[in-house]
Design a protein around this nucleic acid. Structure first.
Lengths: 229, 229
DNA sequence: TAATTTAATAAACACTGTATATTTACACTG
DNA sequence: CAGTGTAAATATACAGTGTTTATTAAATTA
């Protein structure tokens, strides 16, 4: 018997393969992800996976894009937990959602921000729609603040000309993206990413009663540094 | 012929293996590091490497420790480019050295801060002496500032009790480590790490004439946030 | 009903890290 | 100087990996 009857086929196998991949990534980490191990768990043979993904890298890319979408969704929810105009609360909402997602799915975070799979090269263009979704909430709130004339900017410097093409990609994707908004958003993102990634690696002690004190101090300091009043 | 005569042996093979590993990491990235590829390049067989490293993970650990030492050395030099008492310049010196090292050796940076090798588990205790060397310059400067009563601290929260053991490890290694110094140093480190790691992955546009503007703004903002006058 | 497409398996290839046994150059001891 | 022991390499083998090719049989379409 080579091809099983429809009744014995796994329905929606493409999704099931991804779910199994996530399960294994959670267990053994992204770098040790194995197509054959996925196949074993699903009781199919490894080449069967090639009917759904042209190679292992394509599977990884699909996982990354799904992760970005979920990551972005959490941040949109975090932002909208406070109404328009509540700049500080909306910004904090994004930061907290960002951190919560990373702590809920540490392997997904490292899949996105590490280079975890041997030989895998990040297909920036393919992933861009999903990755821009995950940065959009931050961009949008900083832009809200700027339009309300509440954005504090010290020492802004414009973008280098050589980098304009990549910058253009962002701008078209966002509709528009003011350079100052971009500048401040990058400062904020880097601070949140820095503390979250060090936390995930166990490099940061758990300050405060619930272990969140350092992160909250980071967020609070950004609010007073970048938002007027 | 099984064992070559002394004249044909590669002298200092342990070091040569590490150098070859670094060369290959620079070419194909840390996750794709291969003992057999190293052996091929050195014209020996793969099991010969086991005379110098018990397994692949031990080689990786040795590489990480060497990287940490070099990383720390650069930061010590950066700190000491300004004399004692010049708090802002010493802090900036560390930040710039941190970034320069990361841009000079991006793969080493990702080897340290990523989880790049399949199945590799970071041996925290073994690596600790080397990794603490790399954070010591920052700790020392923040402590200098605190002792000079120029350290600005808002919203400090003490370390959680459960985390005391790890904290104790740091404290004994450093001689002593004031909690407030630890708190502020972690905030600073996370901001520098965040921006540097996003830069290395190509997520940050190159602001300013030379592309350093965002990083310098980050450093400048830390100086005015944490140092009095 | 016949032809075609599709979804799987089977087998094989070139890799990988690593364990075991073997060989031989070198160092030490009587 | 002879003999022994150790050290540093090779040879071989095993289980695992991603991937390619050929084959089979179920499902779909003409």
């Amino acid at each position: 018997m080579v091809r099983p009857t429809l009744k014995k086929q796994i329905p929606n196998l493409q999704e099931v393969i991804k779910e199994t991949a996530w399960k294994q990534i959670a267990q053994v980490g992204a770098p040790a992800l194995s197509l054959r191990a996925i196949a074993r768990e699903l009781k199919i043979t490894a080449p069967a996976i090639y009917n759904y993904f042209p190679d292992r890298d394509a599977l990884v890319t699909a996982l990354i894009m799904d992760a970005y979408r979920s990551f972005g969704d959490w941040q949109f929810e975090g932002r909208d937990s406070a109404p328009l105009g509540e700049h500080a609360k909306r910004l904090k909402g994004i930061g907290v959602a960002y951190r919560n997602w990373a702590h809920e799915y540490p392997q997904r975070y490292q899949l996105i921000f590490g280079t975890p799979i041997p030989g895998y090269v990040y297909p920036a263009e393919t992933v861009f729609p999903a990755s821009s979704h995950a940065i959009t909430p931050l961009f949008s709130v900083v832009e809200e603040i700027r339009l309300a004339e509440k954005l504090i900017i010290k020492s802004f410097k414009p973008v280098k000309k050589e980098y304009e093409p990549h910058f253009e990609m962002w701008r078209t994707s966002m509709g528009s993206l003011h350079p100052q908004t971009h500048f401040v958003a990058m400062l904020i993102w880097s601070r949140v990413h820095g503390i979250v990634s060090l936390e995930l690696q166990g490099n940061i002690p758990l300050f405060g009663e619930d272990g969140h004190a350092l992160f909250l101090a980071q967020v609070q300091s950004m609010i007073s540094e970048f938002i007027k009043e």
